[in-house]
Amino acid sequence: MSGFNYRAIWSIYRFELHRFRRTLLTGLLVPVITTSLYFVVFGGAIGSRMTQIDGIAYAAFIVPGLIMMSMFTESIFNASFGIYMPKFTGTIYELLSAPVSAAETIIAYVGAAATKSLIVGTIIFLTAHLFVDLPVAHPLAMIGFMLLIAISFCLFGFILGIWAQSFEQLQVIPMLIVMPMTFLGGAFYSIHMLAEPWRTITLFNPIVYLISGFRWTFFGRGDVGIELSLLFVAGMLVLCLAIIGWMFRTGYRIKK
């Protein structure tokens, strides 16, 4: 047999979505509840004192950041877990002994994790409409941006899942690095509100560019130019693909 093994991709993709379906209720309730809580705390409590940022209602302003933050964590968590579990339980033997290429493996696992992440992003988007008037300046760009973010963070999660050798390692990067960087990256404020030198320092945080880009698709403006945002997304995609390519070539932590 030769050629593309699309049946393998479909099998893995379905298997992964099936795994998500087992925890469907929590999987969907959590983002709805979290979003509502953010609106109560940030939108209600803080928003009542801080009505506008850059001419945008504060409650609306935080929505893109909220979606991004949830999608970052969902993507990393689902993709890393998806490939870590077979390693942990040993069922990866089957994948390794199957006629499946590295590219097919990635498409299947990353595709499944990205699907779930997009579903969560959409739920938050819809839930937000219950609380606030939300204009979307560039709907197509918004969808495209969500897609790119889901894929690049799932690739990142995939790398993490291959790298991790314990559940602790699996948790440490999202909790200790991605989460703080997201909070500091302007998920809930504009970096223009910061005083120097913090503002300049913040510009070294790549998450700033991602959130700003997504916010641009809603309001037509962000903290940085949209071109710069796209450059960072593209950079992240290329970097993750390069690392994964290297991992598969060398069998890094996959094959003994």
Binding site: M1, N5, A8, S11, I12, A98, P99
Partner: peptide, 10 residues
């Protein structure tokens, strides 16, 4: 069934 699909069989 999953295993069969993984090996590319209809």
């Amino acid at each position: 069934t999953f295993s069969r699909g993984l090996f590319g069989k209809p």
